[in-house]
Amino acid sequence: MYTRKNALHYHAMVLPGIILLLLFSVVPMGYAVIAFQNFKPGRGISGSEWIGLENFQYLMELPDSRLIFFNTIFLAVLKIIANLIVPLVFALLLNEVRVRFLRKSIQTIVYLPHFISWVLLATIFFDVFSLEGIVNQALGLFGIDPVLFYASNSWFPAIIVATDVWKEFGFNAIVYLAALTGINPALYEAASMDGASRFKQLWHVTLPGVKTTVILLATLALGNVMNANFDQIFNMYNPLVYQSADIIDTYVYRVGLNDLQYSLGTAVGLLKSVVSFILVVLSYVLASRFAGYRIF
């Protein structure tokens, strides 16, 4: 009861942000009711015809929608898995390095890509993977014929995932490194006394030490299953690989902004938001129930 008196101040601290969110996030959601309309811009929202779920029904019939939902989830899940494993391996390797200077230098370099925008990276990678690019040059050294990476529906998803991992693995390793530093050194000493080899130590001390972190990260990643990264794909894809790389967000963009199908585009976006929200709630519940963590 003593503490309650501060609540008013807390409200004051939160309110400016909340008001801005209301204005810029909630109000647009009001406009999103056009998903349930045959929206005619000339008549506005109030004058347009309400058609219930017709846009959503049409969506279900479109062969496109199965494809984009599949692509989104497929790419997102691959990224989630790769982004759990690669940073872990990297963190474990780095953890073995005892020379502080080396550690720091490596870290500085591998975090860097995280901070470069996809606009720039897309241009860089287009160059890197082009026919004359360095990847094909390298393949050429082994006598392998150049590959048209950006044109191939089998290569392109791999490139999407690989470049995403390339950009993020260093940064994602930070959480693991923090967990690794948190492991009690006494455990290593004890293991060492018992004559455990380094692999044994890794297996019996280090990995159990980061196990909860891995599980927790996996749970949190659930919220990203519908999120295959618009910025990356928008800047990297081309019509040849729509088949394998067109995701919900890019589709919504094209349908709404290029094709004048406002209602359909908004309907797809709305559907995605609902599914994402359910997934986040699910991950929140799972994390708090099984790992005892409260995310927020």
């Binding site: 049409y58 062969p63 496109d64 019509p239 040849l240 729509y242 088949q243 349908v255 094709d259």
Partner: peptide
């Protein structure tokens, strides 16, 4: 309402058949 979808289907089918 449907043309853009059909057009996309067409463009992609033609291109994919060729390649």
């Amino acid at each position: 309402t449907k043309w853009t979808t059909l057009e996309k289907l067409e463009n992609e089918t033609f291109l994919k058949i060729i390649v």
